[in-house]
């Protein structure tokens, strides 16, 4: 008889394409990897509200404001779905937030870049969400059940995010000279960071091999990045945006675009905390978390008072 608590049996289930649920046996390393990845993903959604939030009050039309607000709200919601899914692994949201604020947990580096003009909202939707969705579509088939279910919901909701971003870019490229300049400026600043979102090359990615073996990750960093590049370059060209890379070209044989090497120094520098907005993003999160503390305490105090009253009247 096989031992249901063995790593070999676990791997067998994974290889059979089964989903793992919260109470099922899982190797410690699998659990740790999931906690790290899911909380990082949740933190990214929540911190990701900030660069776009920077433009809500300056959105140039009622429609634009509505769309942007709904989109940022979705991101908050997705953070929430992911925290909840991660909580099934026995870590509370309080702990996740502590890890984020202490700098122990990471979030996607892309959100450490500033949003400087209105076209940045377009670029974030089109490029950043575009890159995220490539990753997320793949994660719908991830082996951990609660993660996979959250991702299915998230992908369904996110389908408009990239389109609204591209719509902004297309509109601005058809607009005045000023608008075109803003759009190109946003493209220049967000193109490379969005390619970095997929992480280091497979050969330099320490966490990738196990994650693929356990089917947490279904495709590698480089595979996903290539998919994104291949679909995004024609979109840029269609609306007249220049890809800020002098050397990119289509390889006729493979059908894939080849691009210049990514600036990995910048990638590591931002991860290590020296991006333009690392400090600002965390400070913001900490500030409003602390300012909300008395509210959370009040809600809890109210419940406890009234729970006592109820018990006394029984």
């Amino acid at each position: 008889m096989h031992n249901e608590h063995s790593d070999a049996h676990f791997q067998l289930r994974i290889d059979n394409g089964e989903h793992i649920e919260a109470k099922d046996y899982m190797p410690d390393a699998y659990r740790k990897h999931l906690i790290r990845q899911m909380s990082q993903h949740a933190h990214s959604e929540v911190i990701g509200m900030q660069p776009e939030g920077n433009w809500i009050t300056r959105a140039p039309s009622l429609r634009a404001k509505q769309i942007l607000l709904a989109k940022i709200q979705d991101e908050g919601g997705h953070g929430l779905y992911l925290y909840s899914a991660a909580e099934t692994l026995g870590v509370s949201r309080v702990e996740f937030i502590e890890q984020l604020q202490s700098g122990k947990a990471k979030y996607s580096s892309i959100f450490n870049y500033p949003s400087l003009n209105w076209a940045d909202i377009g670029a974030i939707g089109w490029l950043v969400d575009g890159a995220a969705i490539v990753n997320q579509v793949s994660l719908q088939r991830t082996s951990y059940g609660p993660y996979s279910r959250a991702m299915v919901r998230i992908c369904k909701e996110e389908s408009f995010h990239q389109r609204q971003g591209y719509e902004i870019m297309a509109k601005m490229m058809k607009g005045t000279k000023d608008q075109q300049a803003m759009a190109q400026d946003a493209m220049n600043r967000w193109w490379w960071p969005s390619l970095m979102m997929f992480g280091p090359h497979d050969t330099d990615s320490p966490n990738s091999s196990n994650a693929v073996k356990w089917k947490i990750k279904r495709e590698t960093n480089d595979e996903l990045r290539q998919k994104f590049i291949d679909k995004t370059i024609p979109q840029a060209e269609l609306i007249g945006l220049t890809v800020p890379d002098k050397n990119f070209k289509l390889d006729e044989k493979t059908g894939h675009y080849k691009i210049s090497e990514i600036n990995w120094d910048e990638f590591h520098r931002v991860i290590e905390g020296h991006g333009p907005c690392n400090k600002q993003r965390l400070d913001h999160h900490i500030k409003y978390h602390q300012e909300g503390e008395w509210v959370r305490e009040a809600a809890l105090a109210y419940k406890q008072k009234h729970l006592k009253k109820e018990l006394q009247t029984v």
């Binding site: 929430l80 779905y81 909840s84 899914a85 909580e87 509370s92 949201r93 309080v94 937030i97 502590e98 959250a150 919901r153 503390e293 959370r296 305490e297 809600a299 809890l300 109210y302 419940k303």
Partner: peptide
């Protein structure tokens, strides 16, 4: 710190259909 209590949410999408687990929320 508190993030309040964890609750499970079940949604009925149309009258007559079963309630399905949608996810969780935190609330006091």
């Amino acid at each position: 710190d508190t993030q309040l209590d964890l609750w499970e949410v079940f949604i009925q999408s149309k009258a007559g259909l079963p309630y399905m687990h949608a996810g969780s929320v935190h609330a006091s």
